[in-house]
Structure formats: structure tokens, C-alpha cells
């Protein structure tokens, strides 16, 4: 991705290539979501790339793990990817998102354990 190289400098290109290779192994709907996440995170001003790498890394990890589990990408990210990305980057509204993730976690656990018992 040339865009990446121009803003980050080539020392990050190798990391980025590794991300691309990992993303390419994802199902199509996940790849689409990944591209959206990347696009959204790029929109954040004043970043050198380096400080966003771990955030991208964790997001990709999430997608990989959920895809391996056979879940729909929608179930994992919801429908507000820009909001999700704002939360990932810790911007405004991040706290609200974290609360939502908390609720989602407890709700999913309760639902899946119930299904297991029944």
C-alpha cells in the first residue's frame, strides 16, 4: 500500500506487509471490514503510523480470531465501524464504547452458557 509508505516511511513497510498478508487470509466480509477499519484509523490526524500499529494489530487479531470461530463480522463489530475505530483509538466516545463492549461480553456469555445448558 503506497499510501502507507508515503506517510510512515519504509521502515514500517515490512510490518504493514505482514498485516496485509494476514488480512488476505481472512474471509471476504472480514477483509472488507478490515479495509474500513484501516481507512477510518488513517483519518485520525497527526499520527506517524508507529503509534497506531499496535491498535491495528489488536484489531486484526480480533478479526482473525472471530473469523476462525466462524462468526459473522457484523456480530463482532456491529454496524458502526467509524464509532468502533474511534473507540479503538481512544477518541471521544471511547468510554461509551467500552461500556457497550462490557455489556456485550456479559450478554454473550450469558446467552451462550444458557444455550449450552439447554
Amino acid at each position: 500500500m503506497n499510501f502507507w509508505e508515503t506517510i510512515t516511511g519504509s521502515d514500517l513497510t515490512r510490518d504493514w506487509k505482514a498485516f496485509e498478508a494476514r488480512a488476505a487470509a481472512l474471509p471476504a466480509d472480514y477483509q472488507a471490514a478490515w479495509n474500513q477499519i484501516v481507512g477510518n484509523l488513517f483519518a485520525y490526524g497527526n499520527f506517524t503510523g508507529r503509534n497506531l500499529m499496535p491498535i491495528l494489530d489488536a484489531a486484526l487479531g480480533l478479526l482473525e480470531e472471530a473469523a476462525a470461530d466462524g462468526q459473522s463480522v457484523h456480530e463482532v463489530l456491529g454496524d458502526d465501524i467509524p464509532g468502533f475505530c474511534a473507540a479503538l483509538a481512544g477518541g471521544e466516545g471511547a468510554r461509551t464504547y467500552r461500556d457497550r463492549w462490557r455489556e456485550q461480553l456479559n450478554r454473550n456469555v450469558a446467552r451462550k452458557l444458557r444455550r449450552l445448558g439447554g
Binding site: 489488536a58 480470531e65 479503538l88 463492549w101 462490557r102 461480553l105
Partner: peptide, 9 residues
């Protein structure tokens, strides 16, 4: 699994 997903986010 649900915990790991939360932690990744």
C-alpha cells in the same frame, strides 16, 4: 473466547 475478544478490543 468472549474474554479474549473483549481484551483485543
Amino acid at each position: 473466547k468472549e474474554m479474549q475478544r473483549y481484551l483485543f478490543k
